[in-house]
Amino acid sequence: MKSLAAQVGGKVVEKWYREARDRSRREFFDCVMRTVLVTRGGSVSNDLNEAVMIRAIVEEPMTIDSDSAVYEWFLESMQQRRSSFLLDVAADMKNYDERADKLDVNPLLLEVASHWVDCHCPMWLMSRKAILKAAKAFAPGNTGWSEESLKRVLRDAKLSGSAKRPIEDVVIKNGEIAGFYVNADVISGTKPTLVLFNPKGASKTLRYFIVPKASEKRESVVRVGRRGKT
């Protein structure tokens, strides 16, 4: 965003970001409400974050093992609410198993909307090619997603983004997002740059390297540390 601001002006970039954030929030909220209503049989959690977490567990129980945020929330909730929490999760899972075929939420839209302004994977700054690769990395089971299906999602949801899309591609390593290829015209400099970031709720600082790739006229942004791992 700082690099874009240097080119087109800070107020312009901030306007793009606000529009992208507000539109993605509306789409994500609609998706969550649809999924929660179906899962809970008409009863909606008062805590939207809890609704998202429970939904993740109900849909794919192994999320507890693969997602540190879900794992920490699950243990904390179980410690605080004990059996009442487990009974709520069990009831949600039963309702989901019985009514899963009635879901009307586009899973690709859900992934895109939830990560549209994600600071670790800002889809609002990405090309369509990069968005599709990132979405598939977040949901590896959805192999049927295509450029055409993404085009329909972006068209119907009318998600706002940057007029310039500097992130041209996504680097996938071991099934996860490891970094990004960024248009060299956006980020100046010829030497690798270390970027430090402290995400809310994370125990460790995440590190990103911005590595110039002059031969391809691009910059490679590679994540070398992530939450809970070195």
Rank of each mutant, 00 (worst) to 15 (best):
S3P: 15
A5I: 00
A6I: 04
V8L: 09
G10K: 07
Y17L: 13
R23H: 08
R25W: 14
R25H: 15
R34N: 06
L37Y: 10
L37E: 06
T39R: 03
V44F: 14
D47Y: 13
D47E: 12
V58C: 04
T63G: 06
T63V: 11
S68K: 06
F74G: 03
Q80I: 08
Q80L: 10
Q80M: 13
S83E: 15
S84V: 11
L86M: 06
V89E: 06
A90D: 12
M93L: 07
Y96L: 09
R99A: 02
L103W: 00
P107Q: 03
V112H: 04
A113Q: 08
A113Y: 10
S114H: 02
W116D: 01
H120S: 15
M123T: 00
S127H: 06
S127W: 03
R128K: 12
K129P: 03
K129C: 05
A139G: 08
G144W: 00
K151S: 12
R152L: 02
A157L: 01
K158Y: 10
G161I: 03
S162Q: 07
P166Q: 01
I167G: 05
I167S: 11
E168K: 15
V170M: 12
I172G: 04
K173W: 09
K173H: 14
N174A: 11
G175H: 02
E176D: 12
E176C: 14
V182W: 09
N183I: 02
I187M: 03
G189W: 05
T190F: 12
V195A: 07
V195Q: 09
L196R: 10
P212A: 03
S215N: 13
V224T: 07
G225D: 10
R226Y: 15
G228F: 02
G228E: 08
G228C: 14
T230E: 15
